[in-house]
Simulated assay, not measured.
Amino acid sequence: MKVVAFERAKQGTGASRRLRNAGKAPGIIYGGTAEPQLIELDHNALWHALKKEAFHSSVLQLEVAGKTSQVVLRDVQYHPYKQQVLHVDFQRVSATEKLHFKVPLHFLGENDSPAVKLEQCMVAYIVTELEVSCLPADLPEFIEVDLSKVVKGDVVKLSQIQLPKGVEAIAHGEEDPVLASVVAPKGAAADEEAAEGEEPAAE
Score class of each variant (00 low, 15 high):
S113R: 11
Y30Q: 09
A169V: 03
E119N: 05
A184Y: 08
G66S: 12
A15N: 10
G27S: 10
D154I: 06
V88P: 00
V64A: 13
P200F: 13
L179D: 14
Q120Y: 15
V155S: 15
L46I: 02
G153P: 08
L73C: 05
I28S: 07
P36S: 07
S133A: 06
V178F: 10
V182S: 05
E199F: 09
F6N: 04
V151F: 01
E119V: 05
T68Y: 04
K102S: 13
V59N: 10
G109P: 01
V167Y: 09
H172R: 15
V178L: 05
K149A: 15
E144Q: 09
L86D: 11
I28W: 03
S133T: 04
E119F: 12
F142I: 04
V3S: 02
H87A: 00
W47N: 15
I161H: 04
F55N: 09
L163A: 06
V155N: 15
C134H: 03
H79N: 06
Q91I: 14
A189Q: 04
L118Y: 07
D42C: 01
A45N: 15
V85N: 10
E168R: 01
E129L: 02
Y30E: 07
P185M: 04
E7T: 14
D191N: 03
V64N: 14
E193Y: 13
L179I: 03
L38Y: 15
A65K: 14
A124M: 07
E97Y: 04
I161S: 06
E174G: 03
H43L: 06
E203A: 14
I126Y: 00
H43R: 05
N21V: 03
K52P: 08
K10F: 08
G31N: 14
E129H: 05
L41S: 09
N44I: 09
L179R: 12
K82T: 03
D89P: 00
H87G: 00
R17E: 11
E7V: 05
A45F: 07
P36Q: 08
V116S: 05
C134P: 07
T33A: 14
L99I: 12
V145A: 10
K24L: 14
H56E: 05
E40H: 15
S133D: 03
R17H: 12
V145T: 08
H87Y: 02
E40F: 15
A195V: 12
V182K: 03
T13D: 10
Q160E: 12
Q83M: 01
E131S: 06
A34W: 08
P164K: 08
T68G: 12
V132Y: 01
Q91N: 11
M122S: 08
A194M: 12
I39K: 02
T13N: 13
L38M: 14
I29M: 04
A22D: 10
E168Y: 00
D89L: 02
D75R: 05
H56Q: 07
V178N: 06
E193C: 07
I28P: 06
R8I: 13
K98C: 09
S57A: 13
V132S: 03
K2Q: 13
